[in-house]
Design a protein around this nucleic acid. Structure first.
Lengths: 205, 205
DNA sequence: CAGGTAAGTAGAACACTGTTCTATATATCC
DNA sequence: GGATATATAGAACAGTGTTCTACTTACCTG
């Protein structure tokens, strides 16, 4: 039987080819270029392939959405390897921003609603929420050492996320009026840290 | 000559009808429903009217974009009527959020990318930037009284904006994991204030 | 006033879009 | 082998933004 090559492997390859083609188009040309025919042509199949494997355009967008959040989740979950909780939090912010800047188109797809009619599936929404577990965990570690203001860890994590998200989104869209965005991002990080840190710790500084 | 009704007035009315129709559709059905034919039909004219008066779909989207920022600009510029600079800054954040929540679809059009191919015109980008003059002014007032950390006023204003923008955008898109978003927004405001305030002032509290 | 020009108007045509339909091919099972 | 399910390519369909066409209206000039 070793001479028989199952075409099921090839079937999986079509799905992967479509998804990789879509990702390449997204990264190089932006979400506006993600048409069914464009993706299918780049993958070397007929447009119906998108329907056979992803149930349509929204299905393949959903898969790209999940890829983006999986990437973010990996960056956040590895914060646990950083022993110092303060450093882990600061690194969380830095990683969030650098990921966004490294993948601006994926960032838009994840957060800025660029594809009309697209709503994440329930599965994808779970992946998206899970992506922040690492950050929430880092917040909890810092809180356990009394390093933070007396706020719910989930609220603190969302404040961190919202602030960086806002900054990165403005940055990616070219909005804003500061001249040095890198220095601005540092200042934002410092301000947020001042805002969530245990006031007694700040006083002792 | 008072009996002669110039049809130029009627011409302006077509443009206004189109724009008002577009705004109504945006607010009630969202940006995905802003098709040229949909807008024209709602305004009672042929689709070519969008091209005659706005040079096409992107032109009328541009006009909606400007309306949104004009509304925001008015809310920010009236902060000058609030004598206490601290109260003005806090009110700026509250107004930003309440405007976003009152006009979620306009907010998306202004800050997310819901319309494929749309980029603000140079004129609109100016209106957008000018919308924050009131906020920057309020920051400058507080800084002049030594109430803020030693940061450039423009950077401080963008930190404020980015933080609230991030929070409101997540809120509007239904993203996030806190259960009480109102309390979360208050906590965000408090954290940001701690982050931008003059440390000596915070110590004295 | 008549003629010329510019701009607005409605409706039709065009290329592109997401989706569905049709016919065929392939894989699997009995 | 036949039956069934699924994948495949290509075509058809309705909706999209845009352009084209023909006509109308407003304005200006001689």
């Amino acid at each position: 039987m070793s001479d028989v090559v199952s075409l099921k492997v090839e079937t999986e390859s079509v799905e992967l080819r479509l998804l990789n083609a879509a990702e390449a188009i997204l990264e190089s040309e932006g979400p506006d270029s993600l048409s069914v025919r464009r993706i299918a042509k780049a993958a070397g199949v007929a447009p119906m392939g998108v329907y056979n494997h992803f149930e349509g355009k929204m299905g393949i967008i959903d898969a790209l959405f999940r890829r983006g959040f999986a990437r973010l989740g990996a960056a956040m979950s590895s914060l646990v390897e950083i022993e110092n909780p303060l450093e882990a939090l600061a690194e969380g912010g830095r990683r969030y921003r650098s990921l966004g800047l490294a993948h601006p188109m994926a960032y838009q797809l994840m957060f800025l609603r660029p594809v009309p009619g697209f709503n994440p599936s329930i599965e994808s929404a779970k992946v998206a929420t899970a992506a922040f577990e690492g950050l929430i965990n880092a917040v909890r570690r810092a809180a356990a050492l009394d390093l933070l203001r007396d706020l719910d860890a989930v609220v603190t994590a969302q404040i961190l996320w919202a602030s960086y998200h806002g900054w990165v989104a403005l940055e990616i869209c070219g909005l804003g009026f500061v001249s040095d965005v890198d220095a601005g991002a540092e200042a934002l990080g410092a301000a947020i840290w001042m805002g969530i840190a245990n006031p007694n710790l700040v006083i002792n500084e």
